[in-house]
Amino acid sequence: MTSIHLESNQDRYTISIDKNAVDKAWMIKLIERLRMEELAHQLNFDESVEELGEQIKADWWAKNKSRFINE
């Protein structure tokens, strides 16, 4: 058996993860990430929010690119 196992039932997925494969802190972060993804999915943003996010990232990258890439 692998360290991560996914089982599909009629109305749910069950994920089993071997305790020897990950530590508790990693597992808590994974659960928090899954919960955030679930909440974000429920918000149902329209395309304008995604466009705004892309513009913010582009502006940030233009201002900070030199910190990461020497041209």
Rank of each mutant, 00 (worst) to 15 (best):
K65T: 02
E7V: 09
L39N: 01
I31H: 01
I15A: 02
Q42T: 02
E54H: 14
S16G: 12
I31Q: 09
S3K: 13
L43C: 08
S66G: 05
K63I: 08
D11S: 04
L30E: 10
S66W: 13
I69W: 02
K57C: 09
A62T: 09
S8L: 14
N20K: 09
L6P: 01
K19T: 06
S48T: 12
D46K: 12
S8D: 11
V22Q: 02
E37L: 03
A21T: 08
A40P: 00
K57E: 15
G53K: 05
H41L: 13
D23V: 05
N9E: 07
R12A: 05
Q55R: 13
W60T: 06
E50F: 15
Q42M: 15
K24F: 09
E71A: 14
L43F: 11
L39H: 03
N64T: 04
M27W: 07
I15K: 01
N44L: 09
N20E: 15
R67V: 02
N70K: 15
D18E: 12
A25W: 10
W26L: 14
R33N: 01
D46Q: 09
Q55F: 05
I31P: 02
L30S: 10
Y13W: 03
Q42W: 13
S8Y: 08
V22G: 01
G53P: 00
N44Y: 06
M1C: 13
K57S: 10
I56G: 02
K57M: 08
I4C: 11
D11I: 04
K29F: 07
I69L: 01
T14H: 00
T2W: 14
L6N: 02
N9R: 06
R12S: 06
I31M: 10
M27C: 06
L52I: 11
W61Y: 04
K29Q: 05
A25R: 07
R35N: 13
N44E: 15
S66Y: 11
I28Y: 11
E71M: 10
Y13G: 07
E71Q: 09
W26Y: 15
L52M: 15
H5Q: 13
E7I: 03
K57T: 05
